[in-house]
Simulated assay, not measured.
Amino acid sequence: MNYLLKNKEVLTLIGAARLESVWVQSGRIWLTREGDPRDYCLAAGSRLALDGARLVVLEALEDAALAVVVAGQEQHGGARLTLALSSPGGR
């Protein structure tokens, strides 16, 4: 699944399926995932394995394009995710 985020937009991914990886195609993002005490700042060209996390929160540190790979995405034509996108200032 591909996403375009504007600077400071926050994307929360809550998956019925397991999240496998995120690839930052352009821009920079901050990422935290369930079960991992570390936070990550990822720049264009970076890929991070999500190790089957079911909850991931990302914030664009600048306009960013990214792809999220979900377990079973190819077999089922898409995985079930609950998405919450928030803009700076609640817009």
Rank of each mutant, 00 (worst) to 15 (best):
G72D: 00
V56Y: 08
E62Y: 02
V22E: 08
G45Q: 10
A17W: 10
Q25C: 06
S86R: 08
R18Y: 09
W30K: 11
A49W: 05
S46M: 09
Q73P: 05
K6T: 12
V56S: 05
A17D: 15
G35A: 09
L4F: 09
G89F: 04
G52N: 05
A71Y: 01
V10A: 13
G52F: 12
M1S: 14
E62P: 08
P37N: 11
E74Y: 04
R33P: 08
S21M: 08
G90S: 13
L13F: 14
L66K: 02
L50K: 04
E74P: 02
R38C: 09
H76M: 08
G90K: 07
V68I: 14
S86L: 10
L61S: 04
N2H: 08
V22K: 01
E34C: 03
L11K: 00
V10G: 02
K8W: 09
A17R: 11
E62N: 03
A17E: 14
R38G: 04
A71W: 00
R91L: 07
Q75D: 12
H76A: 14
R18P: 04
D51Q: 15
L31T: 01
E9W: 07
V68P: 06
R47V: 13
G15H: 03
A44C: 07
Q25T: 15
W23Y: 14
R54E: 08
V24F: 11
R33K: 15
G72N: 01
L81G: 04
Q25R: 14
L19C: 02
T12M: 10
R47N: 12
D39Y: 03
L13V: 06
K6W: 02
K8F: 06
N2Q: 13
V56G: 00
N7V: 02
Q25M: 13
R33L: 15
R28K: 15
V68K: 04
A53V: 04
L48A: 01
L81H: 04
R33N: 06
G27K: 05
L85R: 15
A64C: 09
L11T: 06
V22F: 01
D39C: 03
G27R: 02
A84D: 01
A17L: 07
S21W: 08
L48C: 03
R38K: 15
A16Q: 12
K8N: 13
E20T: 00
N7T: 09
R91S: 09
V70F: 02
W30Y: 13
A43E: 14
L5T: 09
G90T: 06
R80I: 01
E34Y: 01
V24R: 06
R18Q: 13
V24Y: 11
I29W: 05
G90Y: 06
Q25W: 05
V10E: 15
A79N: 08
W23C: 11
G35Y: 12
A64W: 03
H76R: 13
S46H: 12
L81N: 08
S26F: 05
W30Q: 11
Q75L: 12
N7W: 01
I14V: 14
D51F: 10
V24G: 08
A44W: 11
L19P: 01
G78F: 03
E59K: 15
S87A: 11
R80A: 09
Y40M: 06
G89K: 03
R33Q: 15
I29F: 05
A44V: 02
A49Q: 13
A79F: 07
L11M: 05
R47A: 13
E62H: 09
Y3L: 07
L42A: 04
L4V: 05
A60M: 04
D36Y: 06
M1G: 15
I29H: 05
S87R: 07
L13D: 08
